[in-house]
Simulated scan of single mutants.
Amino acid sequence: MRTNNKTTLAVGVAGAVLVTAGVGLMHIPTAFIIAGLFALAWSFLAARAGSRRKGR
């Protein structure tokens, strides 16, 4: 994994954690919903990236 990819991954994960934590400070159940949406989006993007690599 290239350094640029590692940095992008770290910033993305940190952003998701900070958004979820910020929402959690306001309303705990909504933070769980936001975390679940981040997880769904992550799995969708990972699956899409994996399918594009196989198609090459």
Rank of each mutant, 00 (worst) to 15 (best):
F38H: 07
G36M: 02
I33C: 00
K54H: 07
R2V: 06
S51N: 15
G22M: 06
V23T: 12
H27K: 08
G24S: 04
A46R: 07
R56L: 02
K54S: 12
G12S: 14
G24D: 01
L25I: 06
K6V: 12
P29A: 02
R2F: 06
G50T: 03
R56E: 14
L9N: 11
A31K: 03
G22P: 02
W42C: 09
A14D: 04
L9Y: 14
G55L: 09
G55H: 13
G55I: 08
A16Y: 05
A41L: 14
R52K: 15
L37R: 06
L18H: 04
I34H: 00
I34L: 15
A46Y: 08
I34K: 03
T3Q: 10
S51E: 12
T30W: 14
S43H: 11
K54G: 01
G50A: 13
R53I: 07
I28A: 11
I28R: 14
N5I: 10
A49I: 06
L37C: 10
T3V: 09
G12T: 12
L9K: 10
M1R: 02
L9Q: 09
I34F: 04
T7C: 08
L25S: 07
G24Q: 03
L37E: 05
F44V: 12
S43R: 10
G36P: 00
S43I: 13
A35L: 11
V17T: 13
T8Y: 15
R52I: 12
A47K: 15
M1W: 03
T7P: 01
V11N: 09
G24Y: 01
R48K: 09
R53C: 03
M1H: 02
L37Y: 08
S43P: 00
G15F: 14
T20D: 01
R56P: 00
I28F: 13
T7W: 11
V23G: 04
R48D: 11
L40N: 05
L37H: 04
A10G: 11
A14G: 13
R56Q: 05
A46D: 06
S43T: 11
A41P: 00
N5E: 15
